[in-house]
Simulated assay, not measured.
Amino acid sequence: MNLDDALREGMSMDGALGIAIVDYESGFTVAKQGGSSLLDLDVAGPALAEVVRAKLRAIETLQLDDDIEDILVTLGAHYHIIMPTEARGNGASFTAGQRQTLFLYLVLDRSRGNLALARRHLRGIERQVRS
């Protein structure tokens, strides 16, 4: 599956407002679907990349032997889900030392979307993107 097809599938979720693939080292938005003037996915990419880098530094500082499976930011009107595209074990995760630097970013309308279903659907898209 190519990136555009994967992102179109992400936009088919109930409540999906935008989805992107972002490089967390550079903040560059590799591909995107959806968004709006109020939800600029190109502007969000660098800011979210900093969130990922900060969390990885925290894990390293705390010497936690664990990975980030996803990051959820809950706002009044939206859910923002950040999910890595690299597999480790049975699922995807960020690891401080790994070289894969891409993540999926999904914005979901809280009143129309189902968070549990969106995370499950996004995990399926993640598997398609990395294969």
Score class of each variant (00 low, 15 high):
Met1Pro: 10
Asn2Phe: 10
Leu3Met: 12
Asp4Leu: 05
Asp5Met: 05
Ala6Trp: 01
Ala6Ile: 03
Ala6Asn: 04
Leu7Phe: 03
Leu7Ser: 01
Leu7Asp: 01
Arg8Trp: 04
Glu9Gly: 06
Gly10Asn: 07
Gly10Lys: 04
Met11Val: 06
Met13Glu: 12
Asp14Trp: 04
Asp14Lys: 13
Gly15Asn: 06
Gly15Tyr: 06
Gly15Thr: 15
Gly15Cys: 07
Ala16Thr: 08
Leu17Lys: 11
Gly18His: 02
Gly18Ser: 04
Gly18Leu: 04
Ile19Phe: 03
Ile19Ala: 12
Ala20Trp: 01
Val22Ser: 06
Val22Arg: 08
Asp23Asn: 15
Asp23Leu: 09
Tyr24Thr: 00
Tyr24Cys: 00
Glu25Ser: 10
Gly27Gln: 02
Phe28Lys: 11
Phe28Arg: 11
Phe28Val: 09
Thr29Gly: 01
Thr29Ser: 11
Val30Arg: 12
Ala31Glu: 12
Gly34Asn: 12
Gly35Arg: 11
Gly35Trp: 08
Ser36Val: 11
Ser36Leu: 08
Ser36Asn: 10
Ser36Ala: 09
Ser36Asp: 12
Ser37Leu: 05
Ser37Gly: 07
Leu38Val: 07
Leu38Lys: 14
Asp40Asn: 08
Leu41Met: 14
Asp42Asn: 12
Asp42Gln: 09
Asp42Lys: 11
Val43Ile: 10
Val43Gln: 08
Val43Trp: 02
Pro46Lys: 15
Ala47Lys: 13
Val51Ile: 13
Val51His: 03
Val51Glu: 03
Val52Phe: 09
Val52Leu: 07
Arg53Val: 02
Ala54Gln: 10
Lys55Ile: 09
Ala58Tyr: 05
Glu60Cys: 03
Glu60Leu: 07
Thr61Arg: 10
Gln63Phe: 03
Gln63Cys: 04
Asp65His: 10
Asp65Leu: 04
Asp65Met: 03
Asp67Ala: 10
Asp67Ile: 10
Asp67Lys: 15
Glu69Tyr: 13
Glu69Ser: 15
Ile71Tyr: 09
Ile71Arg: 11
Ile71Asp: 12
Leu72Lys: 08
Val73Pro: 05
Val73Trp: 06
Thr74Gln: 10
Gly76Val: 07
Tyr79Asp: 10
His80Val: 15
Ile81Met: 12
Ile82Thr: 13
Ile82Val: 14
Pro84Ala: 03
Glu86Asn: 08
Glu86Arg: 14
Glu86Pro: 00
Ala87Val: 15
Arg88Gln: 02
Gly89Pro: 00
Asn90Cys: 02
Gly91Ile: 03
Ser93Val: 06
Ser93Ala: 14
Phe94Asp: 00
Phe94Lys: 00
Phe94Arg: 00
Thr95Val: 10
Ala96Tyr: 15
Gly97His: 02
Gln100Gly: 14
Gln100Cys: 08
Thr101His: 09
Phe103Pro: 01
Phe103Val: 00
Phe103Ala: 01
Leu104Gly: 13
Leu104Gln: 03
Tyr105Met: 11
Tyr105Gly: 06
Val107Ala: 14
Val107Glu: 07
Val107Gln: 12
Val107Gly: 06
Leu108Pro: 14
Leu108Arg: 11
Leu108Asn: 12
Leu115Glu: 05
Leu115Gly: 06
Leu117Thr: 06
Ala118Lys: 09
Arg120Pro: 01
Arg120Trp: 03
His121Arg: 13
Leu122Tyr: 01
Arg123Asn: 09
Gly124Lys: 09
Ile125Ser: 05
Glu126Lys: 12
Glu126Asn: 10
Gln128Ala: 05
Gln128Phe: 00
Val129Gly: 02
Arg130His: 05
Arg130Gly: 01
